[in-house]
């Protein structure tokens, strides 16, 4: 690179980074599913480290989720619309559809012990409802929240316990 080009690059790089920061943060502020700027991902938290579920990741694998289910060490939250929950859901899971999460979260989270890990799930590899719900709960102050991607499908593939109707 020539000297003049290098000088140009020196002022252009911070300018591009500054423009990007303004656009990215501005867009994040106006979007409905806003991501909090700082979210304590649970592995780093002292509370999580001292708990039995210290290995809990934001994106949890089916094997880890099944183990927590088997040991009754996690609460599952179904982020899909209520009609899908009634058709079939993970046994013991509570329904908290993403669309109504803000209104209904208080009723649902009341039933969850504060130190109990929460696993959110929906259906489909590209389904983002569980991620959004996990971030929303994280934003509310829940420390042990994970999302099980494509949860309903992989749960069925592994022949794990399910239930139908309105009861967990």
């Amino acid at each position: 690179m020539g000297k003049s080009i290098l000088i140009k690059a020196l002022w252009q790089i911070p300018a591009i980074l500054l423009i990007t920061a303004c656009v990215a943060l501005g867009f994040n502020q106006i979007r409905n599913d806003r991501l909090p700027l700082v979210c304590q991902w649970n592995e780093q938290q002292p509370a999580a480290k001292s708990s039995e579920s210290s290995g809990l990741k934001p994106i949890i694998s089916i094997e880890e989720a099944a183990l927590l289910f088997k040991n009754n060490k996690a609460v599952f939250l179904d982020a899909r619309p209520k009609s899908f929950y009634i058709e079939g859901h993970i046994k013991g899971a509570l329904s908290l559809p993403w669309e109504t999460a803000e209104e209904k979260c208080i009723d649902v989270v009341e039933k969850i012990p504060s130190d109990m890990p929460i696993i959110t799930y929906c259906d489909g590899a590209n389904c983002e409802l569980c991620d959004k719900l996990a971030v929303f709960l994280c934003d509310l102050g829940f420390e042990h929240v994970s999302a099980l991607i494509n949860g309903w499908t992989v749960w069925n593939k592994h022949n794990l316990p399910v239930n139908t109707g309105n009861t967990p």
Partner: peptide
């Protein structure tokens, strides 16, 4: 899908927690 991307960034285990969400918001726009 910023939230899902934040999860992917976290799984790399290369960034401190406090930077993960900012990075997930900033990088795609960059």
């Amino acid at each position: 899908g910023t939230a899902a991307f934040a999860g992917a960034v976290y799984n790399y285990q290369l960034l401190p927690d406090v930077l993960i969400n900012f990075f997930a918001i900033f990088l795609p726009w960059l």
